[in-house]
Amino acid sequence: MTVEACLAEKGYKLPQAAAPVASYLPVVVHGNLVHISGQLPFVDDELVTGKLGDDVSLEEGQKAAQACALMILAQVKAAGIELDRIERVVKLGVFVNSSADYTDQPKVANGASDLMVDVLAEAGKHARSAVGVAALPLGAAVEVDAIIALASD
Rank of each mutant, 00 (worst) to 15 (best):
T2K: 09
T2C: 04
T2V: 00
V3T: 13
V3C: 04
E4K: 14
E4W: 01
E4F: 03
E4T: 13
A5R: 07
C6W: 02
C6E: 14
A8P: 03
G11L: 04
G11W: 03
Y12W: 14
L14F: 02
L14R: 02
P15R: 08
P15T: 08
Q16S: 13
Q16A: 15
A19C: 09
V21N: 15
A22V: 03
A22W: 11
S23C: 03
Y24N: 15
Y24K: 15
L25D: 11
L25I: 01
P26Y: 09
V27L: 10
V29D: 06
G31D: 03
N32L: 12
L33V: 12
V34W: 13
V34Q: 14
H35S: 06
H35A: 07
P41R: 05
F42G: 09
V43R: 15
V43H: 13
V43A: 14
D45Y: 14
L47W: 07
V48N: 07
G50R: 10
L52H: 07
D54Q: 15
D55L: 11
D55M: 11
D55T: 15
V56S: 04
V56E: 05
V56Y: 05
V56N: 06
L58G: 08
G61S: 10
A64C: 04
A65T: 10
Q66V: 10
A67G: 11
C68F: 05
C68H: 07
M71E: 12
I72T: 09
A74E: 01
A74S: 03
A74D: 02
Q75K: 10
V76D: 12
A78T: 08
A79R: 04
I81Y: 06
D84Q: 02
I86T: 02
I86E: 02
I86A: 00
I86G: 00
E87P: 04
E87H: 05
R88P: 00
V89W: 03
V89Y: 02
V90F: 00
V90R: 03
V90T: 01
K91W: 00
K91I: 09
L92D: 09
G93S: 11
G93L: 05
V96W: 05
V96E: 08
N97F: 00
N97I: 01
N97H: 04
S99P: 12
D101L: 07
Y102K: 09
D104G: 05
K107I: 01
V108D: 00
A109E: 00
N110D: 09
G111A: 06
A112V: 05
A112K: 06
A112S: 05
S113T: 14
S113E: 14
D114M: 13
D114T: 12
L115S: 01
V117S: 11
D118G: 04
D118L: 01
V119M: 00
V119R: 01
L120C: 08
A121E: 14
E122M: 11
G124C: 10
K125Y: 03
K125E: 04
H126N: 14
H126V: 03
A127I: 00
R128C: 00
A130I: 02
V133C: 04
A134H: 09
A134P: 12
A135P: 09
A135T: 15
A135D: 14
L136R: 06
L138N: 11
A140D: 03
A141K: 14
A141S: 15
E143K: 10
E143I: 03
D145E: 04
I148F: 06
A149T: 02
A149F: 01
A149M: 08
A149G: 05
A149R: 13
A151H: 08
S152E: 11
